[in-house]
Design a protein around this nucleic acid. Structure first.
Lengths: 153, 153
DNA sequence: TATTGTTATACTCTATAACTATA
DNA sequence: TATAGTTATAGAGTATAACAATA
């Protein structure tokens, strides 16, 4: 007979429940974006560029917690789709900038609506007060831990 | 001049904050497990087998939301590490079962402690009441949406 | 020498689908 | 014919490291 010490269950951890819900939220959003031909990481790039007009790939890499190589490939895809343009930095001959094309700029509000709808679909079962409390709890946790990269997966 | 309609921010969505925290919780846990030579998906298999003694790969696939092919590969790795044994089902010649080896059974409580420590490290900044409320909110959300697969990534 | 961006390469993870053997 | 498990193949995503151009 083998001893079987009592140990914590998978479901005992807060991380388990966060992961369960978060995985489904993200997978659902990825499917919605896929219908528009866009991957989640690509969406993040588009949404960031929408606010700043032009940004160096290295800045994007830092914000998204990815390598420059990965951003370069991501930019390739967005350029191929006609959503982003590369331009040379005028002051630093090594540097480039990425910016939205007209088509890219037009697409972002549409994708933002998908994000809104996805979030609503998942958290409609909570009251407005619960959603607000949950958001504040997550923001506080992120702040306490110093988490500030944009999640991409 | 290009119009720039005001749209929702990435950080407006609950899904954003859940993903941010969840990604870090999972990545941190993955690093802890890696020091023991175990991947997250492998940990889930080990933890499930710890409770049930023996289980068919197809059952595992259903519970974890993965294909049978993926489970088969996962089992290969665990067998190679000496943590899991394959056995033939006595009643159905097609079926197999997976069960923990002695070494596997001895390892699981150690890994469970890593999971406990990881969860504590991330949510120590919340009060016990906040943690309890958060867990209940996530459980309720998962139940309302019918989410019951074990998250693996 | 250090930095920016790109490219070449490799690795992990997983799905799809074909295959083997039972039922 | 259908099912259980395995295997072969392919694709997505990302990291590492080497490279070219510029600072």
């Amino acid at each position: 007979m083998t001893a079987k010490p009592p140990i914590s269950a998978l479901t005992d951890h807060l991380g388990y429940w966060l992961r369960l819900v978060s995985n489904h939220v993200s997978a659902s959003f990825a499917r919605r974006l896929e219908a528009e031909g866009v991957a989640v990481a690509e969406w993040v790039v588009l949404r960031v560029l929408y606010d700043v007009d032009a940004l160096a790939p290295s800045k994007l890499a830092a914000r998204m917690g990815m390598t420059r190589g990965a951003i370069s490939k991501l930019a390739d895809k967005l350029v191929a789709k006609g959503l982003v343009d590369r331009a040379d930095d005028l002051e630093d001959g090594r540097a480039h900038t990425l910016e939205l094309t007209k088509a890219g700029r037009a697409l972002v509000p549409r994708l933002a609506k998908l994000a809104d709808a996805n979030d609503r679909a998942f958290f409609a079962g909570l009251t407005a007060k619960e959603r607000e409390g949950l958001k504040r709890l997550m923001e506080r946790t992120a702040a306490q831990l110093g988490l500030d990269d944009i999640p991409v997966s």
